[in-house]
Design a protein around this nucleic acid. Sequence first.
RNA 1: GCCCCGGUAGUGUAGUGGCCUAUCAUCCGGGCCUGUCGAGCCCGGGACCCGGGUUCAAAUCCCGACCGGGGCGCCA
Length: 610
Amino acid sequence: MRTHTCGEIRSSDIGKEVILAGWARLVRDHGGILFIDLADRYGTSQVVFDPECYESKDVQGRIQTSIETVGREYVLKVKGVVRKRVEGTEDARNPTGEVEVLIAEIEILNTAEVPPFELIDQKETLLANEDVRMEYRYLDLRRSKMIANLTIRNRIASVVRGYLWERDFLEIETPILVRSTPEGARDFLVPSRHNPGMFYALPQSPQLYKQLLMIGSADKYFQLARCFRDEDARADRQPEFTQIDLEMSFVDEEDIISLVEGMIVEIWRSIRGVEPKHPFRRMSYHEAMETYGTDAPDLRYDLPIIDVTDICRDSEYSIFQAIIKSGGKVRCINAKQIFSTDPNVPEDQGKFGRNWIDRLIDWTKDQGAKGLTWMKVIGNKVESNIVKYFGEKVQERLVNAMEGEQGDLLLFVADSPNRSSELAGRLREKLAQEMELIQPDRDEFVWIVDFPLFDIPTPGSRPQAMHHPFTSPEEQTVEYLGGDVSKLRSRGYDIVLNGVELGGGSIRIHRPEVQRKVLNILGVSEREAEEKFGFLLRALKYGAPPHGGIAIGFDRLVAVLLGIDTIKEVMSFPKNKKFQSLTDGSPSYVDEKQLKELQLLSLASPEKED
RNA sequence: GCCCCGGUAGUGUAGUGGCCUAUCAUCCGGGCCUGUCGAGCCCGGGACCCGGGUUCAAAUCCCGACCGGGGCGCCA
């Protein structure tokens, strides 16, 4: 039907007769001469109706008549000769901008209703809100940015596949209708018609299947796997999403880490054209939590969190005293050079004056902090409303510990050890935004390692798997399986980029007796273990090889690579906050007949009950 | 479950009690215009989410639905 796409024609095509097809994106009618930007996925070409260039009035009239009916987003087929644009009217921003096609024949392949919002890139300031865009997602996708996002997503997928295939990985599909297991997120359930009252779950990840594949000698498996989790959405969380899921046999942590690092470097090289610095940094979970207050630290800026509990113990500040006595910690961040050191500038002036501090205190309380204490550094002393409770020595020690200089602002959060760390971490992130410390063109990768095997929220409470129940404990700590389980460390690893957890994995348990013990510690009874995980425990008995792997959030990877903070922009048909698709109106009520077949009739839609 | 923000022409917005018969842009319709490319110019068209309340008076204040977004919890 066409000889070229709309993004293809160049100066080298001048003189050729071409046929283009696409959407009429922008019509510019000058009364005589008339231009149409014809657009498709590949680009935009200018086609021109130039009344002086036709042999007969007949031909000219015929073309003019059809062109006059063309509206926005009409689907056109245009035949004509490529010609050089008039000197000085080239469009350098467009790869096709040196040439245009003189319309010799035009056919309207389809008309179009006026679109409900603007599709032209330059009009993005009037871009419709997300709900309108989702209702007409097919139109939204026509915007060059959106189709470009999906194109890059495809290229990344292609790099991933190429990289892994080159290394002997097998892409293997695992079932979508799977067994519901009690761990982890809430499952989406699918009723079974043949087995009334029974349900499948949609997989939260192919975890157990890829382990079975290792036992089945697959050796190197991967899949761009669709995963489903029925937990509340966020900007970077959707009910269904895609993971680069992979698993290898006869490997240790270093094998997986170097494989994934190589893959990421190759993705960056082929999409961005630059290699990130590697090998990536490594950081223990402990250091991440202590210094950055999160297991996914953003290392594009510094702002370390420092534990000043011991110094504050010697103050008379009763708020700190009470928290320290009950086992809590005081953590401090130094906002470097935040206020003016000029004594002539009043303290309520400038962006970071008292008003700003007050708003920051409010924000911290909104985050669940009991409060926020601040001190300005003046010389080797500090200044604020509460310094009177801090003796001169204590002040000096604080300034030293925080490397305080004139113009610095010290911010203190006091709470339980975990809570104070988490709050300080959020404060650190907030400060970086407010102080504009984040360099957007920087990428800071880091592997977080040395996780505890279990999360024990408060001493004595039931341990929970930090990663998942199939993560192997570190050999040196295995002895604690029967004792102090808080001392167990895991063979897990997370890959973090700019404060975003891209993925995580581990070396798995391949010995059935270790798996049983871990399930036992998690409070899964022998009977329950047999019932829910029996198939895995049995499989482990039949010569399971040592194995491990990782899952990387594909949507997040694509988004972060494009510098976008919501994964909806890199998915074709995402769902909204309530998990509805405004595109197709799902979920929906279904016919009584369907419910009857599934023996779910009591759940019939309210509308149909009357 | 909870918190925050928002809902004004098709779209994006302005509008903190009377000056609103509601701003601007885009859009749509009509006209002019022979080198534009977010074309330009002129004329015209089109809206206060719903239900209560306060008030002499509500787009504006209050309460409650409903809808959308962000976050907390949750997400092994």
